[in-house]
Amino acid sequence: MSADCTLGELMIASIANTIEDGILAFHGFGSPLVQLALHVAKRTHAQRLILVAGATYGINPAPPFLTPTSNDWVMDRGAACSLDIEELFDLAAAGRMGRMFLSGLQIDQWGNCNVTRMGRDALTLKLPGGGGGCNLSCDAEHVTLWTTAHRAPPDEKGRRRFRLVEECDFITSLGHRARGRPRRELGHHGGGPQWLVTDLGIFDFDDKGRARLRTVHPDVTVEEVRASTQFELTVVDTVETTRPPDPEVVSLIRHLDPMRVYQHEIRPDDRSRRFALA
């Protein structure tokens, strides 16, 4: 067994830790990290998890390996059955989806995400769009957010392009407060973002609904997180170091993803980061 793990493996294990046993959770498409986190949870602490695969809507599949695209027969092999698109979203609308996973090119302090467009007035960059993320951000009971691009190093002129921003140019998926309006006034079923796992650390959300730094990864300081965050950083009383995964979990991830597809999602500079296991 390996003595250390990669950033991706640390993030997969951290996302898996946010998944409760006995719920129905859906991993969406386009994220190997989240796909792997659900398979890890299902095979460790959450064996009663109802795992719905993104794109194929297969229930509890056992893919022989991970593919770089989500709507592939590889990804629903071993599934007991498959939902159709309307059934999956109906389950969420009826309040029966326990957890969903969302990300964005911008994530603000309230947990709103933007995957639609950059530029508030003029369109400066068209992003791919959010799939069903907008609907599920309102309907799923809880949301785990993640990003692999929190670190915002300064360019040659000292400017930083933040992923964690003061306010999203476009709110694709809903956090705890949108354009000054608190989520609770909207009467949605879902409680909104509960965790935010990044390449630098892990946030929860305080009782006002603001992201709050809870742990930093072993090679990161709170000051580095602050410098890479556009909104004013709040932290818990004692920021701890993110707990590295158990060796069994790292072995499981390597077994589930023999081609290391998840590394596509990690920035090239971060692919060589290593963390000692417990």
Partner: peptide, 30 residues
Amino acid sequence: DSCCYTLVQQLRAAIFGLPFMPIRSVRGTD
């Protein structure tokens, strides 16, 4: 841009021969 369930409900309205369908989500987003 749309989102998946919004699209599903809009198609269902057409299939059901109704002018619209309601959804709870989307409110509060842009």
